[in-house]
Design a protein around this nucleic acid. Structure first.
Lengths: 234, 234
DNA sequence: TCAATACATTGGTAGTACCAATATGGGGCG
DNA sequence: CGCCCCATATTGGTACTACCAATGTATTGA
């Protein structure tokens, strides 16, 4: 009988994962500055050495960027060389419709898995993202980032690392070349209202743990956006 | 006139490059043990902290491997998975089940799009892949590569560059670290027969341009594989 | 007003001490 | 003699401190 697959993880790795998740979840947005190492060390109650090890790992992976005398920043996707999606876009001349078509597959599946494995913590993140988007819109801005956070939160709820990785690359990309295209969609208040409503609906269905319906409401959501771009494409 | 493109490189980076060169040049052969950090620090006349920074960088990149209480070793290429970034990104602990779950979303969607936009040329490629796989099996080998070709051909039929790119990366990934897991599935002749049959079915439905049914047969196909791995996982 | 300087902040390096895991060798017990 | 157990040495991991290097900001002076 196997007693313990317990993992005596290195402390620096634990810190590493924490920060990585913050980035994946969108709580640390691109080009945002990280807390100073000394402060972070005190907060997490570990030595600065450990913090530096964790951060350095993220730097090597291209998620963070050091700037001596200034601080540590989350790399903005456009300066990040290794993003496969960006590469695909540049080489193959993809359109936003192409991206949405693939998202259709990825996200519907993501929603279904989230319905199966989501926890209260995940629901909280989802709700938080929706509220954030609501505030952004109320204050006159476009809630694109909060929107992305919402969809990332769903990916995270799947507990599937591959899903998270792919989705993250997707949204990195959305925030570089395509964002201006998204403005068309977001600039019409009517669209925003619909999207917000759909997000609430998606959250509800995921919480009900109904996989099939989760798939369906997400399908409807993406379809709405897809139809919009197809209409203005003509 | 620019006087000096001199590089005020970080010391740890200089050490990093030195060691990397040694590995690339083959002076440090795979599975060979590196000099202890303390000794290395004294030799290069820098602090152990700096040495550790350099080594850690190489560890993250997958060139070195730490073993507490033993030493640091050059990773042998066969244990080194294909895409270092992907591997280190948190996908390193991904299982084949994780991959299949994401494939479920990607490929079902792919099949539906292929049904919508596929041409005779695409059908020819699909059929060719199936025949290839059949021959491989008949001659006693596993038809893993032909299998991948089949699924890639579906991606091509979508006429969606993003879909193609993602799927390509997926199969690159599959054929590095995970392939050995696939052997379990392929080694049972009964499984091969089922898979082959399913491939024929998928081709038929795609040719009929029935998007919904294409989705369904692909779903069934992936489910079959997924269920197999879930069963042997317990 | 503007420029130069001084200061504060933040990442980079150094050095030391100690903890944790592993390998090795020697001594005791069968 | 041979095996197991344990002390010890070796090596990577963490902690803490001090100081260097680069950058941004505030202060000062002409």
């Amino acid at each position: 009988m196997k007693f313990k697959p317990i993992k005596p993880k290195k402390i620096s790795d634990q810190v590493f994962e924490q920060i990585r998740e913050l980035i994946f979840r969108g709580e640390l947005k691109p080009s945002e500055q990280l807390m100073p190492e000394r402060e972070l060390a005190e907060t997490l109650n570990v030595s600065r050495t450990t913090i530096r090890n964790a951060i350095n790992k993220l730097v090597v992976l291209g998620l963070l960027e050091h700037k001596q005398g200034q601080g540590t920043f989350v790399t903005s996707p456009d300066t990040r060389s290794g993003n496969p999606i960006v590469a695909a876009m540049g080489v193959h001349d993809a359109t936003i419709i192409d991206l949405l078509e693939v998202r259709m597959g990825l996200e519907c599946n993501s929603a279904a898995l989230a319905a199966r494995r989501g926890t209260q913590k995940d629901y909280d993140f989802l709700e938080k993202s929706i509220e954030e988007m609501k505030e952004e819109i109320a204050s006159g801005r476009l809630g694109t980032e909060a929107d992305a956070s919402f969809h990332m939160a769903i990916a995270y709820a799947t507990k599937n690392p591959v899903q998270v990785y792919l989705m993250k690359n997707f949204y990195d990309f959305l925030f570089t070349g395509i964002q201006k295209n998204l403005k068309h969609l977001y600039q019409e208040p009517k669209n925003l209202e619909v999207i917000l409503k759909q997000h609430y609906k998606i959250l509800d269905v995921i919480k009900s743990k109904d996989e099939v319906r989760s798939y369906q409401v997400m399908y409807k959501h993406i379809s709405f956006v897809l139809d919009y771009f197809r209409s203005i494409d003509n």
